[in-house]
Design a protein around this nucleic acid. Structure first.
Length: 474
DNA sequence: TGAAATGTTGGGGCG
DNA sequence: ACGCCCCAACATTTC
């Protein structure tokens, strides 16, 4: 009565729906498959970096419970079939994934494996609410966040998280496992020092991160989250993406920590709303499976995006000449993550100031973010480009100077990630090209040499974007 | 989860 | 005292 448990984006033992079911049934062989067929959105560089560490952490947790993680490389269907035979397993358990290509592959795979006599059990685990159940009165999917979230909150609360199984019943014999290094997830040359310093992948790190946020961040979240230099946000996104902590755990721990009234309560509820955006993103991905590549608002397929390889490269490398934009892009490059306010600003800059297609931005984020998630990434970029559900209107163009003055008033964030500007005084650091030559010289800044001049002029680029979008709108 | 332009109001300086 | 102007602060409209 041995089962296979197939780990994917649920790399945890606590509150793992399908794992719990498998352990109740009998001996379990936990397996992770590194599979070449998971395209076109195969994990990017930063995701692979995270995955390697998360798998190591998962293996360690399993070993504490008398089990271990079996790693395999190859076509998922073939690996599972072979492994079931090897282990004399008669059941397969896994949690559902919602990415269109993966989900279609899984449906086929489950049918094929059932034909071989395997019992296949797939659980809904990643989301708070059943994405197929949340619909408007007309039975259509929601396309407006607030209505979607209100509807979710009218549902019964998601179930309380379950404790991790005390032991994972082990099989009489273990099948062979590939070595973690054979998955070749680590970068070839060591660009990962910044990621290493910033993160603790794995379930233990995820739980520690949540505890810290509940204790130190949540009460101030509503205000502090707007300031990228502050530790004002939860930083749970990569942990949630890899399923190292369940959304149910976050939901219930936050609710338990909520005061009965006051600003701290509102702040916690605003944080939960962000978990709601994650649900909304999955809702959209499930109902509009073409959106990772195609704009939800179909006529945007004809939008005249600029072909601007130089601009794209400057944006990617954090060399646009706009300090806040560059700080964000460099935070991304160095740490595998970017503060959300800055994500909105750099995205607006790419699609509005440079008028480069949002998909270019989505692809770059996909490769560089440790929290790269097909649902959230798609929603975020289509929101910014104005071609998605509940999207920013075309005329909403972030002013990178103004945003910098408002949300990084003392330039702390810029100084951290754009060190060549660190010596500039506060009133010059947001727009160094306007600084008096003497001030620049004293700060050791030579525009065009140590730091680029702006690659586009804000007022001009804004006007051009408005004209292009307005013309397109007709 | 915007920014900029335009309109309105009201206080204070001043002839 | 009064009217006029200036301008900051705030509100509304427009992109």
């Amino acid at each position: 009565m041995t089962s296979l448990f197939w780990f994917r984006q649920d790399l945890r033992l606590t509150d793992n729906a399908a794992l719990h079911a498998a352990c109740t049934r009998g001996p379990v062989v936990p397996v992770y498959i590194w599979s070449p067929e998971e395209k076109p959105w195969a994990p990017g560089g930063a995701s692979k970096w995270w995955l390697e560490r998360s798998l190591a952490s998962l293996d360690a947790s399993l070993r504490k419970r008398g089990s271990k993680l079996i790693l395999r490389i190859g076509n998922t269907g073939e690996v599972l079939k072979a492994l079931a035979k090897e282990c004399k397993a008669n059941a397969l358990y896994f949690n559902r994934r919602y990415e269109p290509a993966i989900s279609a592959r899984d449906t086929k795979l489950a049918a094929a494996l059932r034909k071989t006599g395997l019992e296949v059990e797939c659980a809904d685990d990643a989301l708070l609410f059943d994405p197929l159940a949340i619909r408007t009165g007309q039975g259509t999917p929601y396309q407006v966040f607030t209505q979607f979230w209100n509807r979710c909150l009218a549902e019964p609360a998601p179930p309380e998280p379950r404790a991790a199984p005390k032991i994972i019943p082990k099989p009489s014999a273990w099948p062979k496992s590939a070595a973690l290094a054979e998955l070749t997830l680590s970068p070839k040359f060591r660009w990962d020092a910044g990621l290493q310093a910033a993160w603790t992948p794995g379930e233990v790190g995820a739980q520690a991160q949540l505890r810290t946020f509940l204790k130190e961040g949540m009460a101030e979240y509503a205000v502090a989250r707007d300031y990228p230099s502050r530790a004002g946000v939860s930083r749970l996104s990569p942990h949630l993406h890899f399923g190292e902590i369940s959304a149910r755990t976050v939901y219930h721990r936050v609710r338990e920590a909520l005061p009965s009234r006051g600003a701290a309560r509102d702040s916690g509820l605003i944080y939960l709303k962000e978990i709601g955006w994650r649900e909304f993103a999955y809702n959209l991905l499930i109902h509009f499976p073409q959106t990772p590549e195609q704009p939800l608002r179909e006529k945007f397929a004809k939008f005249p995006w600029a072909s601007n390889a130089k601009g794209l490269r400057a944006w990617q490398r954090g060399q646009t000449g706009y300090p806040l934009v560059d700080a964000g892009m460099r935070e991304l490059w160095q740490t595998g993550w970017m503060h959300n306010r800055v994500r909105m600003i750099v995205a607006s800059f790419l699609v509005k100031h440079l008028r480069i297609e949002w998909l270019e931005g989505a692809r770059w984020f996909w490769d560089t973010l440790v929290d790269a998630d097909l649902a959230s990434n798609t929603l975020g970029w289509q929101w910014s480009a104005g071609c998605g559900a509940d999207a920013a209107p075309y005329f909403r163009i972030f002013n990178p100077i103004l945003q910098s003055q408002k949300f990084d008033p003392d330039g702390a964030y810029i100084r951290r990630y754009v060190p060549e500007l660190a010596q500039l005084p506060n009133d010059c650091i947001h727009a160094p090209w306007e600084a008096p030559p003497l001030v620049l010289a004293e700060a050791g800044v030579r525009l065009g040499a140590t730091y680029p001049r702006p690659i586009v002029e804000h007022v001009e680029a804004r006007a051009a974007a408005l004209a292009a979008f307005a013309k397109f709108r007709g």
